[in-house]
Design a protein around this nucleic acid. Sequence first.
DNA 1: TTGAAAGCGCTAACAT
DNA 2: ATGTTAGCGCTTTCAA
Lengths: 351, 351
Amino acid sequence: MTRGSGQDRATIRDVAALAGVSVATVSRVLGGEYPVATATRTKVQRAMRELDFVVNAHARALAGTNTKTVAFILDDVTGPFHALVARGVEDQATIEGRLCLLCTTHGDPQRELDVVELMREQHADAVIVLGGAYEDTEHLERMTHFAHALDRSGSRLVLCGRPPLGPDIPATVVEYDNEGGAYAITSHLLSAGHRHIVFLGRVDKLTTTSQRLRGFTAAHHAYGLQPDPSLVFDGAFSRASGIDRTIKLLAQGNPFTAIFAATDMVGAGVIAALRDANIRVPEDISLVGYDNIPLAEDLTPGLTTVHVPHEELGRTAVRLALHRDRETSQHVVLGTHIQVRKSVQPIRTGK
Amino acid sequence: MTRGSGQDRATIRDVAALAGVSVATVSRVLGGEYPVATATRTKVQRAMRELDFVVNAHARALAGTNTKTVAFILDDVTGPFHALVARGVEDQATIEGRLCLLCTTHGDPQRELDVVELMREQHADAVIVLGGAYEDTEHLERMTHFAHALDRSGSRLVLCGRPPLGPDIPATVVEYDNEGGAYAITSHLLSAGHRHIVFLGRVDKLTTTSQRLRGFTAAHHAYGLQPDPSLVFDGAFSRASGIDRTIKLLAQGNPFTAIFAATDMVGAGVIAALRDANIRVPEDISLVGYDNIPLAEDLTPGLTTVHVPHEELGRTAVRLALHRDRETSQHVVLGTHIQVRKSVQPIRTGK
DNA sequence: TTGAAAGCGCTAACAT
DNA sequence: ATGTTAGCGCTTTCAA
């Protein structure tokens, strides 16, 4: 026996031979749609079991039309936000009888494009891209190209958590009310009397931040206020960045009473850095996050944040994409809402 | 134009025609291994670009031998432990030029079996199963069957974070020193003077707990002690379970000074429940966890726990499986070590 | 209800 | 260096 090179897979032909029927018949019992005499079906199934037969998904995909797979592209499985959406995608895909192809970009726009291209080869029934989009014309153009290419080949591009590419682009879009959530939680801070609020975000070309910053700004306007530009900090969406920016913020010395961390992960870093600096939350400084990942509950104090319907985002993405015929809309915006915990305290006069 | 049914994919034949060469030549430039005249290659590549050609991975898999995919089966992407290992798998798979097929079992042993079977259809180069195994004879037998079946068809079963199936079973095994970690951290507690230590685990047929419990017990023995059976609690590996068991534990009234939470997630629940009960960690009760997930650092107090090399576990799994020829061993055990934080305090006499 | 046969898009001999 | 051709394992007309 030549080592490792065992080509032992039973094929449909082996099954047909053993069962004494034609390959077409075997294919029919495999498909299950076409009528086959009960006796024949039994014979075939016994033969399949006997040979430990397993269909070849590739042969099937090649001969048939769809592949029963859904491709999913995200930054990093390790990010709680993405993991939660991934669970929604995976669960719904399972319900729909699909397997999940998973690919990671580590936040690299170029890799995102490469990966979509890679997924095209796989002929997945849908290609779901998760997370904020890069506000870059070329990137957008290339995505648009993919949307058309996928559409032409019977697949579907799904934008999950990012805005549509344009009015006539064949793509499914599942967003959440990102700006609305930011507006709401900023108002929450404002109504508690806070007037000097720090925004710790990622002031780069990412739709996620743009929208959150827009909500932040709009809420200020609603109160007849302007956000203080010296209080808007750039940084990554990570705990480490939260720590780092907080240290810088403290060193800068500008007065503030509350911090809006653009994500809960950033918020976790802020809490850690504040604790190191012996600053109490919420007694000295109020803090809010965004995303409502499970960690928010375990922080001390519990983090007041914006809840995003993660799993529903994922589930909706695959459901919409897979049922383009019977779904009325291919663009939905899911709601967000504040989750109040313990990290915010009203400003007290005379403190 | 018939809606949605556009069959527009350019094939290798279209490219060949446009470039004025044979399909074999196109296939060769696609593969990149075989010598092709530079001029020809250029012509072909231009044609490919012009037609927006993308290879069909299924046709390729059918005609060629390997599929350039790795299958990965885990409980739940949302669990930090699993997510971290998943990142290792995904990263290494990318390095090795493989795509990842992802499937979730939600802790259901039957589904695990079903999913492996499903992955067989995909002809992945490796099928990686993550997490503790169910100590059930039939389950083991069926896994063994899969190991052989995958091996016969040129694929490979990889057990990641679970013990080998047996001496002559063709499977790759990547474990971590589970018992050793439990032994070490229990000793840590013991050496701090704790003599009544609660074990909050999952006393069911899962290798992960068995091993941790074994290390817990062995450490006691090393101190000439016996673990108190009334202090060993059963429960799930979740935050909720940690809360629940802690409440029961407190109600039971048996004295104890420390808690060994079988996972950090359980530990997070313990901390929450203890805080609700106005019991301080570590002043009143010491606590340790297991896994060293990122959350451990964000808990208050920081959780002393056992570090598991998550990502390396994942990376090693795909590396070993993909290079069975050049890898010397197909069974490795990665080390674990204690990560000390703030949740343990020595027993003080006279307190 | 079943069978025969023509591909699906590609790779890999085997020729040239 | 390039072309011809025979499959890979399956689905799906078209006949019977």
